[in-house]
């Protein structure tokens, strides 16, 4: 006889044991619960409250932390403020393109290190460097690399590629580029921060995709080989369907995080050059103008929009899944 689990041990003390376990579980979890409530849940509820109040940093001492008077001014202010729609559009472009690039790079990286080769461990570890390093340090290195005067990119561009002028990658809003006689504006600074975003976060996608890849049974690939599928066909019809779940999950996670991203853009451009995303606008309202109510309303709008996007994504996604089933 092997030991029986505590839950099923004996008929008589059964329910009490279960009660004991339940009580112990709640007791062990309660410290975490209290702290998460105090520092996460209550503040979120409070934000909702502040958003309907007139509250400014400078009168925090007099009116207390609850502000004074119910008002819709903050929300009116958000929707009528100049640049709100532009900030929103910038945020959406930044999130969609950044997420897609990060996942694409991560997929490529995972496929590359899938099969063993000499030095694979080192290559794999180096691919995680951008993700684990302090954002302030890597953002500074990028801003120096892209600097018009001191940066190596512009030095290389001018010396080797024959650029006429240095390109201010992080401050130029738009540059006219002529391709095949068609002239069009390219959002230089926005593309730079998107490139940084892809560079910094592809390791995250890489890790998850690699973990999934290594769990794909080797038999599948061999069966495809036996049936005469070429390597590309095996990737398209055997491997990719196996990865669709983890890629979909990554798309959701990365989109959420990129949509809320603040550090990267603040450190690289400070929101200048057409890179002012919504979170930068919130930060400026909070610290620059000290308008707490407006900042709270703005951040609620951000969270609300995010919820709408996610809702649409899942609706759309559930449908395509049904269609394919």
């Amino acid at each position: 006889m092997t030991a029986r689990s505590p839950g099923s041990a004996g008929e008589r003390p059964g329910p009490t044991l279960r009660q004991q376990e339940s009580r112990a579980g709640l007791a062990l979890l309660s410290p975490t619960f209290v702290v998460v409530m105090a520092v996460v849940v209550i503040p979120i509820l409070w934000t909702v409250f502040i958003a309907f109040r007139d509250l400014r940093l400078r009168d925090l001492r007099e009116v207390g932390i609850f502000g004074s008077g119910f008002t819709l001014e903050n929300f009116v202010g958000v929707f009528t403020s100049r640049g709100f729609l532009e900030a929103l559009a910038t945020t959406v472009i930044y999130s969609v393109v950044g997420t897609a690039l990060a996942i694409g790079l991560g997929l490529a990286a995972a496929l590359i290190v899938r099969a063993p080769f000499r030095g694979r461990t080192l290559v794999r570890a180096s691919m995680l460097l951008p993700y684990v390093s302090p954002v302030v340090a890597v953002a500074f290195v990028w801003s120096v690399m892209l600097d018009p005067n001191l940066g190596i990119v512009n030095a290389f561009g001018q010396d080797v590629l024959g650029w006429e002028r240095a390109i201010p990658f992080l401050s130029q809003r738009s540059s006219d580029v002529t391709i095949f006689g068609v002239s069009m504006g390219v959002p230089v600074a926005l593309l730079s921060v998107i490139a940084f975003q892809a560079w910094r976060y592809f390791p995250f996608a890489f890790l998850f995709i690699l973990a999934r890849l290594q769990a794909v049974p080797a038999d599948l690939d061999e069966a495809g080989k036996v049936d005469g599928a070429s390597p590309l066909q095996r990737f398209r019809y055997i491997l990719l369907p196996q990865l669709s779940g983890v890629i979909a999950l990554l798309a959701v996670l990365r989109f959420i995080w990129t949509f809320n991203e603040f550090d990267d853009i603040y450190l690289l451009t400070g929101g200048g050059g057409g890179t002012e995303v919504v979170s930068i606008g919130i930060f400026n309202r909070l610290t620059g103008r000290g308008d707490i109510g407006a900042a709270a309303a703005f951040s609620l709008v951000l969270a609300g929009l995010l919820a709408i996007f996610l809702f649409l994504y899942f609706r759309f996604f559930a449908r395509t899944n049904e269609a394919s089933a």
Binding site: G7, F283, A295
Partner: peptide, 29 residues
């Protein structure tokens, strides 16, 4: 341990992880 709300707790904690930091920053500030 098996206790009331065990599954929900995990979901709530992960949801917290997905919340915009900037949203939390305002009330905490």
């Amino acid at each position: 341990l098996d206790f009331f709300g065990r599954r929900q707790v995990n979901a709530v904690f992960l949801a917290v992880y997905l919340f915009p930091a900037i949203l939390l920053a305002i009330p905490l500030f």
